[in-house]
């Protein structure tokens, strides 16, 4: 049976502010799931806390709305226990790059097969507009009493260092492009980061829809090749990362979106499968574990 976009929606009222970039991301996720024809019961969407945290409630798959900053550990644990599920984690920039920064790094190192979408708007929306880790120094949005004191973190650059195997940037108001990025990210084997430029119309009056509309351009339209073609070639990996790093810091009059970097590396699941002969088949339903025989371990203790 074919799944339509509506099969991935829920009846829950979407309580984001009118004009919020989150709507574009939500639509792109719905469309991507339909494009991939993933059965809803084979998909689980996780979120952190913040405006973006509401996302799972608006998607007709398994939805687990976790804690502030901890979405990646929860999603990772879920995936390791139930590896046949398609796992998507979402969160805001404060959630992922601030309070969850440690997990953002560790997820890159682990390379579990999941997709992480960050709604990046430079502010803490749900607590009324404080500066987030991606708001540049000296900027004063209308919700800030004083200009921002700290430098902005560059998520793409950090992801390159952390070991993400798929690194992309989307734009919330280019839903079709974002949909394609999400499709590619889900199809990618490994941890995929999509940092999404997501204007907050309520609190961020500087990085607005108009601001981005005038600046974003698509990497793929410039002949940019993000793919490491020989994943065992460390030299090519470094070259592709260096190229992506240059693009990551291109944030003036022109802002690139699209896939910055992509490489096929063994996932944590691959490593586990090599170590655990029955892993993945039995963990969640777990029938074989019920017959575990401790005799050899008890014998060793004699």
């Amino acid at each position: 049976m074919a799944y339509a976009v509506k099969d991935y929606k829920t009846e829950v009222w979407v309580d984001w502010c009118p004009g919020c970039g989150d709507f574009g991301i939500l639509n792109a996720i719905h469309q991507a799931l339909a494009a991939l024809q993933l059965p809803p019961h084979k998909v689980a969407v996780f979120s952190g806390i913040g405006c973006s945290g509401k996302t799972p409630h608006y998607i007709g798959t398994y939805g687990i709305h976790t804690l502030h900053g901890r979405v990646l550990p929860v999603a990772t644990g879920f995936k390791l226990a139930n590896p046949e599920m398609t796992v998507i984690a979402v969160g805001g920039d404060g959630d992922g790059y601030g309070i969850g920064a440690g997990y953002f790094l560790a997820a890159g190192r682990r390379n579990v097969d999941l997709t992480y979408i960050v709604y990046n708007n430079g502010v803490y929306g749900l607590t009324k507009g404080q500066a987030s880790p991606t708001l540049p120094k000296g900027v004063q949005t209308k919700s800030l009493p004083e200009p921002n004191l700290m430098e902005a973190l560059n998520p793409i650059a950090v992801a390159l260092g952390a070991g993400y195997t798929f690194i992309a940037r989307g734009y919330a108001y280019d839903v079709r492009h974002l949909r394609d990025l999400i499709v590619a990210a889900i199809q990618h084997r490994g941890t995929a980061l999509i940092d999404v430029l997501q204007p907050c119309p309520t609190y961020n009056n500087i990085y607005t829809r108009e601001y981005y509309n005038a600046r974003v351009y698509k990497l793929e339209e410039t002949g940019y090749d993000p793919v490491v073609h020989n994943p065992t070639d460390e030299k090519e990996i470094v070259e592709k990362k260096a190229q992506a790093l240059l693009k990551a810091y291109e944030n003036g009059d022109r802002i690139p979106i699209g896939i910055f970097y992509r490489v096929e590396r063994p996932t944590l699941e691959d490593e586990l499968a090599a170590r655990l002969p029955h892993w993945g088949k039995a963990l969640a339903n777990l029938e074989p574990i019920y017959q575990r025989d401790l005799t050899p371990l008890l014998d060793e203790l004699r």
Partner: peptide
């Protein structure tokens, strides 16, 4: 014994990963 044993980046991750695994059915 087919057990996934994972060293995490901190105890916050350890507990939350375990909660995720529990929700997944393990």
């Amino acid at each position: 014994y087919n057990v996934v044993v994972i060293q995490t980046e901190d105890e916050i991750s350890a507990i939350n990963m375990a909660v995720g695994a529990a929700h997944a059915g393990a």
